[in-house]
């Protein structure tokens, strides 16, 4: 075959398969929502999954938030002191964390920590016929397995992002006040005046909620769709990280431009 045709057909194939996957992921998403009532009626299933996605991600979130906050403090100080406004360091740290780094870095870490675990677990359940077995017992795997994990992810993400931002601010404080010597009062008061609850804190929460939906549904879909082999599951896990990360960054841009325009 003509090499140009080969390339073209390759591109076409890629595009159609992507669109197909997007469609079936959306279908899974809708089914998950439809079956949500069942997972809420038996809330313990969701609580169990919050433990595995949320609580288990806590350590990595807290440690990275602390370091991100400290680095922000240091970097911010070196730049701000040139303009003689090193008191604004609190504002810089808080705004950077609340608006961007909190939701985005949390989502990226979540995809790596909890997302991969979800994909691998569901992929293996599929490979070992556990999902089929459930189907044959007249129990919908979407209601019993997918939906509780979905809501656990959606609930955990904003909580983790809030913790990330708070711990990050404390990290920034630790660098700015005791180490560099910025005034304690100025640090907090500047922050207090310039950070708006509605614009910054709530918008950050909305972002992390959207990221929670995206990351969790991607992880669930990749697992649910994985070929039932060892190779299939491992590739699905990799795809979860790549797709989630790119989706989070893309969504972040879209959400930010919406929020800024208002």
């Amino acid at each position: 075959m003509n090499p140009i045709f080969k390339i073209l057909s390759n591109i076409g194939n890629q595009v159609t398969s992507r669109i197909w996957r997007l469609g079936s992921a959306t279908r899974l998403f809708c089914l998950t929502l439809i079956y949500s009532s069942e997972s809420f009626r038996r809330i313990h299933l969701t609580i169990r999954e919050i433990y595995f996605t949320g609580v288990m991600s806590l350590i990595i979130i807290v440690v990275s938030a602390f370091f991100v906050g400290m680095v922000l403090g240091l970097q911010g100080y070196y730049t701000l002191q040139k303009y003689g406004s090193s008191e604004s360091i609190g504002v810089l740290v808080a705004l950077a964390l609340l608006r961007e780094l909190g939701p985005v870095v949390t989502a990226l870490l979540f995809a790596g920590r909890a997302g991969t675990a979800i994909t691998a677990e569901i992929g293996l359940m599929k490979a070992t016929e556990q999902l089929s077995a459930m189907e044959m017992m007249a129990i919908s795997p979407i209601a019993r397995i997918i939906s509780p994990r979905f809501w656990a992810g959606v609930i955990s993400m904003p909580i983790l992002a809030s913790i990330f931002s708070m711990v990050g601010v404390m990290g920034g404080y630790l660098v700015a006040v005791p180490i560099i010597g910025v005034d304690h009062g100025a640090f907090w008061s500047q922050m207090n005046v310039n950070v708006d609850f509605r614009i910054d804190v709530i918008n950050g929460l909305i972002k992390s909620f959207v990221f929670g939906v995206a990351c969790t549904i991607i992880a669930l879909y990749e697992g649910y769709d994985a070929p039932p082999t060892a190779e299939g599951v491992s590739r699905a896990t990799t795809r979860t990280v790549v797709t989630s990360s790119l989706t989070v960054l893309g969504l972040d841009f879209i959400l930010t431009s919406f929020m800024m325009s208002n």
């Binding site: 293996l124 359940m125 070992t128 016929e129 556990q130 089929s132 077995a133 044959m136 017992m137 007249a138």
Partner: peptide, 20 residues
Amino acid sequence: GIYELRRKMGMLFQHGALFT
């Protein structure tokens, strides 16, 4: 209806398919 029918069935999968 299918779920109704499946309640009358029990299936043993090739490798057991126990919930791990």
